[in-house]
Amino acid sequence: MIEMQDIWKTYPNGTHALKGVSVKIDRNEFVYLVGPSGAGKSTFMKLIYREEVPTKGQISVNGFNIGKLKPRKIPYVRRNIGVIFQDFRLLPKLTAYENVAFALEVIEAPKKVIKKRTLEVLELVGLKNKANRDPSQLSGGEQQRVAIARAIVNNPSVIIADEPTGNLDPETSWGIMQLLDEINFRGTTIVMATHNRDIVNTMRKRVIAIEHGNIVRDQLRGDYGYEF
């Protein structure tokens, strides 16, 4: 599903973000990415959705050699990867419904399909009754649910989540985690970077710890491991 072989990433300013990372994530896995800020977690994920290209090494997602992908093909690979961020990244001038429908308009789905599928996922994330609100009229947790709905509306095989609960209070965070767990249960691989020890220690999954650009720990049903 996702496979990295000796991945190096050096940014133009000389920062060595990743130094020879090799990892294999199978279909339907749920992986926590932990480690201090600046350890390379974000780079790790950016490589998966082809925001960045590795300086060295091979990375394949869904069988595509992502590093060698022609720019023209990038959009088509991204349609199979849902991305969720700490700051939600919704289009502020579109309603919740339009934000979700947007991901389907992009792939030129028929109108009927767009409507049916959008309402379906909004119901799944529990926001069907707030479909016509603007993001500014929604709480943080609700906005993140819209973002999740947008990420899954295309039925992607992978979801990349960069600190999805980073801006939310603990209670709301649990709601989001339950949602992600359910999505994972339905067959979507999830890679999630987090600093939330409670979540990692309670909802036990595979834990990959990155420090100074290297994987220092890779543990099934692992714990957060950092004491601070």
């Binding site: 088509y76 289009l91 947007f102 295309n154």
Partner: peptide, 10 residues
């Protein structure tokens, strides 16, 4: 940026 993220072509 968001458009590109959800797979919009140029």
């Amino acid at each position: 940026g968001i458009m590109k993220l959800v797979g919009a072509t140029n």
